[in-house]
Nucleic acid binder design. Structure first.
Lengths: 202, 202
DNA sequence: ATAGTTTGATTGATCGTTCAATCAGGGTTG
DNA sequence: CAACCCTGATTGAACGATCAATCAAACTAT
């Protein structure tokens, strides 16, 4: 047992226990004691690795954020730069990656969204995510649409993705991921093909 | 001070204080003591009118739900039955009514969404809202679209509304309500006018 | 006087944090 | 190789703070 790998292993183990606890009990009732019990360790160990509970929550959200970023990046790597629609689809599909669309992850996201309204550290992470999604979409749309339409398209598709996610978190029996993907892709396709939802007319 | 009018007045007063407390501190830190202090009354009074804290939260969410329903219903009352697009627009505009789009209300909604994942009473209220929005939209779309397209349209517009709402709650400086309304209306218009985001092609 | 309302101190429970103690392993020294 | 120390990991009990709920007493209006 080396010190460093052990440490990062414990961290990951505690983060996963945190996700499980949030899924089972909700963030409000995801107590240190419960998280530690789920991980099979003592409660004191958490402050040793994360400082305090807020540190653990921030690390957990950062973990989700990183997974989401990788899911998108990996899909885009396979798309040639000139294939605009391909990149847009990759962004959409990445956001509905299986790592993000299981019930535990979606519920955790919703809890973090709510918590970010009153915790600066979480808010910063959430803004990174929001801006990244918007910027990625906007950059693609801008290559085939005028700037104002590109902004509208990005706003629209980003909000649609978030809305579908939200409904996924709130639906106990889970949602049809394939249907979500299709709705988002078709919406993006409509923008790309020009017969967008009515050109801006102030 | 009459007994019955007094009672309902106190209830409303405490519900508004709850909304303020949720806005200022977040649901997790919206304690009984704080809510009572915001309302200028003693802490014990809450259990007298709402039983316990959960009862107060449920009443608060029900209050928001009712306001939203009225905002939509009132706008639809002015639209003739045959004006499909008018009804759809009324539903959208009602969901972006000023009673719902101030920062306090939007944040409260997000908190309630998160809480509803683990509190059956709140979950029931949230489902009522979700189904009502979807059913209203679907009923309109069905009059000009085949059933499967109507379902897609309703899902899409409902998710878009929720997503725009979500972003409104998470954006500290607030959002451009008019822009949200426009995006949602244009999206609905596209579905209604048939050049929908690609007819289902399964 | 009686029923409804309001207070605010008290209670009991819960939670996050702290910390002294223990443990395991690796490096150092003689 | 053996005795030693050192570092980081881990435990679990103890502490202090906080909060929701309770309730007896005070207040108000009819």
């Amino acid at each position: 047992m080396q010190p460093s790998p052990m440490a990062s292993g414990r961290r990951r183990q505690l983060i996963k226990a945190t996700l499980t606890a949030i899924h089972q009990y909700g963030m409000a009732d995801a107590t240190i004691a419960r998280i530690a019990r789920l991980a099979g360790v003592s409660s004191g160990i958490i402050s040793h690795y994360f400082g305090d509970k807020a540190g653990l929550m921030e690390a957990t959200m950062r973990y989700l954020l990183q997974q989401l970023g990788e899911a998108v990046a990996e899909r885009r790597r396979r798309i040639p730069p000139e294939d605009i629609a391909g990149h847009v689809d990759a962004i959409i599909d990445g956001n509905f990656d299986s790592s993000q669309t299981n019930v535990a992850a979606m519920r955790a996201w919703l809890e973090f969204w709510a918590a970010s309204m009153h915790q600066p550290a979480l808010r910063r992470l959430q803004r990174v995510n929001e801006r990244r999604l918007y910027a990625n979409l906007c950059h693609q749309f801008r290559q085939v649409l005028p700037a104002d339409q590109a902004r509208d398209a990005a706003q629209s598709v980003a909000a649609l993705i978030d809305g579908l996610w939200l409904r996924g978190a709130l639906t106990p029996e889970g949602i049809d991921i394939e249907a979500c993907r299709r709705l988002a892709r078709d919406n993006a396709r409509a923008w790309l093909e020009g017969h967008a939802p009515r050109t801006t007319e102030t």
